[in-house]
Nucleic acid binder design. Structure first.
Length: 827
DNA sequence: GCTTTCGCTGTACC
DNA sequence: ACTGGTACAGCGAAAGC
């Protein structure tokens, strides 16, 4: 018997003599690599119809107990059955727990269970590892004391330990959670490839960068006269790949990370190794990386957690990032404040020595930035895996709906609930075609420059509504029937279209949410008292889960899909925000604007403390855990009309607080599909107006810029328009400028991928009626820009509505200037 | 042949 | 396909006259 402390990192399973075993890789506090092996038989539930006699149930259990699978790839049997009183969607049920010898036969067993007494079979689709984590409570990223028999270098399980790059292999007997808040720092290896063709299977690998603690190298098969000292040269690609494998094994990391490495670097590496007949045996059992998932491949390396950092950044950070793309360069710049080395891609045979030198630096830096970003994201990943209770491999790739669902599944046992199944194929298409339900309320603003504004918003609006009003799949009682009067124990929600009933007795989902909100509040205040990246990450993970839970209930792929709950939540949201608007009016504040959970009020002659008193009054009248809070006081704010100029535009405003900090929403300034010229001018115009309270100097600035545009003094980079290619080029029905440019790029042999930002500018044309797409050119083309287009379609639209607030028509300004200029040049 | 309408597309807000 | 609905705006082609 041995006993060690360890932290589980990578979860896997294997079969031995037709039984399932869990294989978990972790580390001890002193850095030894541990492999835990545990026998574990999976199970599922047969939920019985009500009113079946005990005798019948006994007979049924016996019958089930004898089921065997012999026609499959292995012999499987039922190990044990167990009758239990459980809950399913909140209702009491009797269910038989069926423990089987091999989870891979789950489906085969269920097919033999189409029996009269059985109402439903459930939890066939709960992942084996997930189930193990729930049952043994061996949650990733926490510390445990592991007791068991050491089987390192033994013949157990066919000598599995002999081929394993581990310090100790233990057959688990007892696992106990220990209190250890010590943050585990993993050994991380970041890598990046440069190739001579972007398409996997076509090109060759030119260089590989590797970055780990105290380790920075570029491996290459290209030789230039004087190599930088971090570059190691190999005779050919095969030697270089062998060297990669050698270094990988020497470093023996816990985590391999890359940026887009699931879809590019790792499959590329695998493909080249296959072609060159090199065994990419980087798994701790000497296995090669395996890919699953088809369209969105996921690369798995046995015993080593491969993390494609891009995927985690996309789900966990993208909503907070200002970056206009989620590329490594933009993200590293924003999160680390480090700029990427600029490198112009050329065909490798055309590159000169200096360019190769730069290419090496570029390659190294990609791995350096990936490494640093990973370290920065580590706390968040750990907190995610602790909250969702799923391994890091999954956490780093899952979207928010999967996160919400994992949170639910891992906590169901507290409510004695059996999990609902995932929707089947037909169900999904049915759900996807459902009508949209009405969403949140947005108040139409009156265009104006306002002074002295206060903004309030509801804290965690959606989750607080769902929790307070108990809106969920298991508490939904159905639509109101005309004759229905049995609503004593139910809450009625009038969505305007339909009336829905929900049970008053708290359901598990609203209860879980309430817990999440409570803990989020607790960690947030703890963080404010003792700021640390861990507490910040923890508070943030809870916040994200809470916010995604509303969308989850309306999502077609959800186990606990309930669009009626979503529709009810929005109906309730509309009711409360409108009430606040009305009460504000009665208390002498005037609502300028409101969107979903926020409200901007004109203070008029009211003081700040009067505004806070009003807030207090509102809160005293709010039910449950609903709460309105102060967002900020603002010195000025501006709302404008829509382009047509008929009414005030929603989702578009700019504010400045008393410290001079601006908050700009919806304006072209914050839209990446407008050129920088227009965006920067608009930003400056807004700043001047908000700071000075009038339009005078902003107008001057605009006039100056118009002059510069006409004199062709604008730099090319200022007039570039960027639009994302959101789908494969072939799927476009409309031929827009960016599609035209993308086709042109493709024809010129440039890489064009779904998701990339297409850049172009608009050039002059003799044909005045030419379409925009006919005047669109690549950034490096030489045609002079179209003055008229940039004035009338970029700069003017960006500031026109702002000056309109002051009754100034900027269009006249351009026309006048144009006339003057023409008359000058004509004479 | 010109103007208006409408579907497609992308982006942002919450 | 991988959380929800609301809103704005530009482009290009179809529809309307």
């Amino acid at each position: 018997m041995v006993s060690i402390d360890f932290i589980p990192l990578d979860y896997d399973s294997f079969d031995f003599e037709e039984r399932n075993y869990v294989k978990i890789i972790g580390r001890t506090p002193s850095g030894k690599r541990v492999c835990l092996i545990d026998e574990y038989g999976s199970y599922f539930w047969a939920i019985l119809k009500s009113g079946i006699s005990e005798k019948k149930i006994k007979e049924l259990q016996e019958k089930i107990g004898k089921i065997t699978i012999k026609d499959g790839p292995r012999n499987s049997n039922v190990i044990k059955t167990h009758l239990e009183n459980k809950k399913f969607l909140g209702k009491e049920v009797k269910a038989i727990k069926i423990i089987i010898s091999n989870y891979k036969d789950t489906q085969r067993f269920s097919e033999k269970l189409k029996l009269q007494e059985i109402d439903k079979i459930r939890e066939l689709d709960v992942n084996y590892i997930t189930r193990y984590i729930i049952e043994k409570q061996l949650i990733p990223s926490y510390w445990y004391k592991l007791e068991g028999e050491e089987i390192s270098n033994s013949s157990e399980f066919g000598g599995i330990s002999n081929n394993l790059d581990c310090d100790i292999v233990i057959k688990a007997e007892k696992i106990t959670k220990i209190e250890n808040e010590k943050q585990f720092i993993p050994k991380v290896l970041a890598f990046d490839l440069e190739t001579d063709d972007f398409e996997i299977g076509k090109g060759k690998i030119l260089m590989i960068s590797l970055v780990s603690e105290g380790f920075k190298k570029v491996l290459t098969c290209k030789k230039i006269p004087s190599m930088p000292d971090y570059v190691e040269h190999y005779n050919d690609e095969a030697d270089m790949l062998e060297a990669f494998i050698k270094y990988f094994k020497k470093i023996s990391p816990d985590i391999l990370t890359g940026y887009f490495s699931d879809s590019f670097d790792l499959p590329y590496l695998k493909s080249r190794c296959e072609k060159l007949k090199i065994k990419l045996n980087i798994g701790i059992d000497n296995s090669i990386p395996k890919f699953s998932g088809g369209v969105n491949p996921k690369g798995r390396i046995s015993g080593i957690t491969h993390i494609d950092l891009y995927q985690f950044i996309e789900t966990a950070y993208s909503q907070y990032l200002q970056s206009e793309t989620l590329g490594l360069g933009d993200v590293a710049n924003e999160l680390l404040g480090e700029k990427k080395v600029v490198h112009e891609f050329k065909r490798s045979e055309k590159m000169k020595e200096e360019e190769w030198r730069n290419f090496f630096a570029y390659n190294l830096q990609d791995a350096v930035l990936t490494y640093k970003l990973f370290m920065k994201a580590w706390s968040d990943m750990v907190e995610f895996s602790k909250l969702m209770q799923e391994p890091l491999f999954n956490i780093s790739r899952d979207g928010m709906s999967a996160n919400v669902e994992h949170y639910i599944i891992h906590n169901l046992y507290k409510y004695n609930e059996i999990a609902e199944r995932k929707p089947l194929h037909d169900e999904i298409s049915q759900r996807r075609s459902r009508e949209k339900y009405e969403g949140a309320f947005v108040l139409q603003p009156i265009p104006k420059l306002y002074e002295n504004i206060v903004m309030f918003d509801f804290t965690s609006y959606w989750p607080s509504i769902i929790s307070t009003f108990n809106l969920s799949r298991s508490t939904f009682l159905g639509e109101k029937q005309a004759k229905d009067s049995k609503s004593k124990n139910a809450l009625e929600v009038d969505t305007g279209k339909k009336k829905y009933f929900f049970l008053k007795e708290k359901g598990f989902f609203p209860q879980m949410l309430e817990e999440v909100i409570k803990l989020r509040k607790q960690y947030k205040s703890e963080y404010k008292l003792h700021p640390s990246p861990i507490l910040k990450a923890r508070s943030n993970a809870f916040k994200l889960i809470a916010n995604a839970s509303y969308g989850y209930q309306g999502f077609f792929g959800a186990r606990y899909y309930c669009p009626e709950a979503s529709a009810s939540a929005t109906a309730i949201s509309r009711k409360f925000i409108k009430e606040v608007i009305e009460k504000a009016g009665k208390s002498g504040f005037k609502a300028i604007y409101s969107d979903t959970d926020s409200i901007c009020l004109e203070m008029s002659k009211k003081t700040n403390s009067q505004a806070l008193e009003f807030l207090k009054k509102i809160n005293s009248e709010l039910p449950g855990i609903m709460e309105l809070e102060l967002e900020d006081f603002y010195k000025r704010g501006i709302w404008v009309t829509t382009r047509k100029g008929e009414f005030g535009a929603k989702k578009k405003y700019a504010l400045i607080n008393h410290e001079g900090k601006m908050k700009i929403r919806g304006f072209e300034t914050v839209r990446r599909d407008w050129c920088n010229l227009a965006r920067e001018l608009q930003n400056q115009v807004l700043e001047k107006i908000l700071k000075e309270g009038n339009e005078k100097s902003a107008l001057e600035l605009t006039k100056q810029l118009i002059k510069l545009i006409k004199e062709r003094k604008i730099e090319r980079k200022q007039i570039i328009i960027r639009t994302q290619l959101k789908k494969p080029l072939s799927e476009y029905k409309a031929i827009t400028p960016h599609v035209t440019i993308a086709r042109k790029m493709l024809a010129e042999g440039m890489p064009v991928n779904q998701g990339m930002l297409i850049e172009y500018y608009i050039a002059e044309s003799d044909n005045k009626k030419a379409l925009k797409r006919e005047r669109a050119f690549l950034p490096d083309e030489t045609k002079p820009y179209d003055i008229d287009y940039y004035l009338k379609n970029q700069v003017l639209p960006a500031v026109e509505n702002i000056f309109q607030v002051f009754n100034i028509n900027v269009n006249d300004l351009i026309e006048k200037q144009t006339k003057n200029q023409k008359s000058l040049s004509e004479f």
